[in-house]
Computed example of a mutant assay.
Amino acid sequence: MSTPDFTRRFINLASPRLGAVVTAATDDFFADKARLIDPADPVFIVGKYDDNGKWMDGWESRRKRTTGHDHCIIKLGQPGIIEGFNIDTSHFTGNFPPAASIDVCSSDADVPGSDADWQELVAPTDLNGDSHHYIEARSEKPCTHLRLNILPDGGIARLRVYGSFYKNWQPADYENEIDLVAAENGGRPIVANNEHFGILANIMAPGRGINMGDGWETRRRREPGNDWAIVALGHKGSVEGVVVDTAHFKGNFPSAISLQAACVETGTDTSLPVQSQFWQEILPKQPLTADAIHEFREAVDVIGPVTHVRVNIYPDGGISRLRLLGKLSAE
């Protein structure tokens, strides 16, 4: 199934491993609100029931017998700029809401109070059962909370919130070495020539990969050449060290990796693949091994501030994490 561009160029901000949590719901009688942001794809288990009825993999409220509607509140791990959503009703057929809307706000509380300035980001939108609903909607300001309104009741399997984290950099941050491409520092995927077994965004996630599916992995290459990807740093900076982790990739790790980089002043994400072929090499071709952390310092050519990095893997395969260590540029 083809998905919109924003699902590949941005990360899922509503990911528990990035600190997101479901903090409140008006009702979750049939299915726990926490399942709404479970990173795993929803499943349907025939014949599975609990004390309240049929077990469903998502958030589901009881049948409403009064006016009004149900809602659920998600707190992001840190402020983010939202670019789009996937409201997923997979496996909800006779119990999905006819419509939904989404509000956003910024608050320091787990559950924003009555004085919260909620702003509608997604107007009431018709939903279908057992379907993905991709909605492009950009927040003009960083937000910390989302309120998913279901009209009037029912169940949603998953909510994915695509965007990038907003960092309010402090003067002290410019003195310290950080991971310039980490998702929590505003890094984001741009494009990969192939993501058959694992998406590019995974390599920016915190911690080590939990399994082979928690990385970027391409299909087996049956033609000359090599696979590649482009990532954007969270802030312009100078790359001084590189860490490549092939955790869990044992029979399918790339034989080698190289990196190119540039300070991109103009253009669009779509124009980058052509330009990137001629970017300056900052890490010449280095061998990789299975299920291991590879650290590179002496081999890195520090060329000054850059904004984007091209990752070349030879000839194909998967890597779990990429860390681009360096300092922020004050330019």
Rank of each mutant, 00 (worst) to 15 (best):
E240M: 11
T218S: 06
N194Q: 13
E223K: 08
W169R: 14
G215E: 00
R222N: 15
G234K: 09
N202C: 06
N149A: 14
G215F: 00
G155V: 00
I156Y: 01
E177V: 13
G234F: 09
T246E: 06
D179Q: 14
H248F: 05
F249P: 00
G198A: 09
N202G: 06
G187W: 00
N185P: 06
V244I: 14
A205M: 09
Q170P: 08
H248Y: 02
P224S: 12
K236R: 14
D245L: 02
E184V: 13
Q170E: 13
G213T: 08
A183V: 12
E217M: 08
V181T: 07
T246N: 03
K236T: 10
K236D: 07
I178M: 11
E223P: 05
N226W: 08
F197N: 05
G237K: 01
N194H: 07
W216C: 00
R222G: 15
P189M: 08
T246I: 05
F249M: 02
W228L: 04
Y166Q: 06
I199P: 02
R221Q: 07
P206D: 12
G207V: 04
G209D: 01
P206N: 11
G207A: 15
A172T: 05
R220D: 09
D179W: 11
Q170M: 14
E217Y: 02
N202I: 11
W216A: 00
D227N: 05
P152Q: 01
N168E: 09
G198K: 01
W169C: 03
I199V: 10
G209E: 01
G207K: 13
Y162Q: 07
E240N: 11
P189C: 15
G186N: 05
G186T: 10
H235E: 15
N194K: 09
G251A: 11
G215V: 03
N193L: 11
A232K: 03
M204P: 01
Y174D: 08
P171H: 09
S238I: 07
N193Y: 03
H235L: 12
Q170W: 11
D153F: 08
I190C: 15
R147I: 07
E217I: 03
R147Q: 10
Y166R: 12
G213P: 04
G251Q: 10
V243L: 05
R222C: 11
A192H: 04
T218P: 01
L233V: 13
V191P: 04
A229P: 01
V231G: 02
E195Q: 13
Y162D: 00
P206T: 07
R222Q: 15
D227T: 03
G215Y: 00
L159W: 04
G186P: 07
P171D: 10
D173M: 10
L180M: 08
N202H: 07
D173P: 13
I230G: 05
F249A: 01
G163T: 07
G209P: 05
N211Q: 14
L200M: 10
E195I: 02
R219N: 06
P224C: 08
E240W: 13
H196N: 12
D227R: 06
L146W: 02
V231I: 11
I203V: 11
T218G: 04
N185D: 12
